[in-house]
């Protein structure tokens, strides 16, 4: 019984982590660039949700969600314009640093604008819990899982069933060829950053209700996203989701049997074991290599 309860919590947490990781993979696949600001974008999304709630009092989270995602998409475009596009044809490590710099700006901008206190955003549909078969399920957990599933499915549909998605994929596979085919590559890249930031915003809203948000929350999240994406297979979308669920499982389920410290150590040892058996991650390499 308690295990089922922990599973629900774990999947809810993993679903939110999956959104963080997916935003990271999107940008990675489209540009080959590692966006170290992804964790801080999630944090920014959390604070944005808190701030918007101040303007629209008593609005439930599902009303705020599209607003947060839209505003975060604009932030994503700004990030691509300042931190990626100027460095596009430069050594790829430059983007490490430019996105680290964006993260520093976001984190300290949040401290100055919102103060250092932890904040909580509104729940998606209201708090409370309901009981299924003796299981206490927080409404928010189910709402988080459903929202994340919806967003992940929506993203899948966008990429496989729409003209825009085909253009985005073409840009990701070979920007030179895409440009030759008349696809506006720069706009596609900016759009990818917008999508990645919108997903980060959604994750920020979902996480900051149950788990609060502080200006320094981003660094822990980028670490989790990086691990999820790599262990799943660099650039693999399903790999990133599985990786995120794996991390959450260690955080919530394994730490029920071991201490938190032992569970964290077990997570890292499991990662090393996975790499020993599958040196290309669980789902294999999906992203094009930057030669």
């Amino acid at each position: 019984m308690i295990l089922a309860q922990l599973m629900v919590n774990g999947i809810a947490l993993g679903a939110a982590y999956a959104l963080v990781a997916l935003g990271f993979v999107l940008v990675l696949n489209a540009t080959g660039a590692v966006n170290f600001a992804q964790g801080d974008l999630v944090m920014a999304g959390g604070f944005l949700a808190v701030a918007l709630a101040g303007f629209i009092p008593d609005a439930p989270g599902f009303v705020l969600l599209p607003l947060v995602m839209a505003l975060m998409a604009l932030l994503g475009i700004a990030v691509s314009a300042t931190a990626y596009l100027p460095l596009r044809n430069r050594p790829p490590v430059g983007v490490f640093i430019s996105t680290i710099a964006v993260g520093i700006i976001l984190q300290n901008g949040a401290t100055v604008l919102f103060g250092p206190e932890p904040k909580a955003a509104a729940p998606l549909f209201g708090g409370g819990a309901f009981t299924i078969a003796g299981l206490q399920v927080p409404t928010q957990s189910i709402a988080v899982i459903a929202t994340a599933a919806l967003l992940i499915a929506g993203q899948y549909w966008l990429f496989t069933h729409t003209q825009l998605g085909r253009r985005l994929r073409a840009t990701a596979q070979d920007p030179g060829m895409a440009r030759a085919c008349g696809i506006p590559v720069t706009s596609m890249i900016a759009l990818t950053f917008a999508l990645g930031a919108a997903l980060a915003g959604a994750a920020g809203l979902l996480l900051s209700n149950q788990f609060f948000v502080t200006p320094s929350a981003g660094s822990g999240l980028i670490l989790k996203a990086y691990i999820a994406v790599t262990i799943g297979g660099w650039g693999s979308l399903p790999g990133a989701v599985i990786g995120a669920l794996l991390i959450a499982a260690f955080e919530v389920v394994v730490s029920y049997t071991l201490s938190y410290t032992a569970a964290t150590a077990a997570l890292y040892l499991a990662l090393l074991a996975i790499l020993a058996v599958r040196p290309q991650g669980l789902f294999g390499e999906a992203s094009r290599r930057r030669a």
């Binding site: 100027p86 050594p91 710099a101």
Partner: peptide
């Protein structure tokens, strides 16, 4: 005070954009 790291981040960003190698 607590805003100085914003400037630090901006300076870092400007440096890598100006000197990408």
């Amino acid at each position: 005070e607590n805003g100085y790291l914003i400037l630090y981040g901006a300076a870092l960003l400007a440096t890598i954009v100006a000197a990408p190698w």
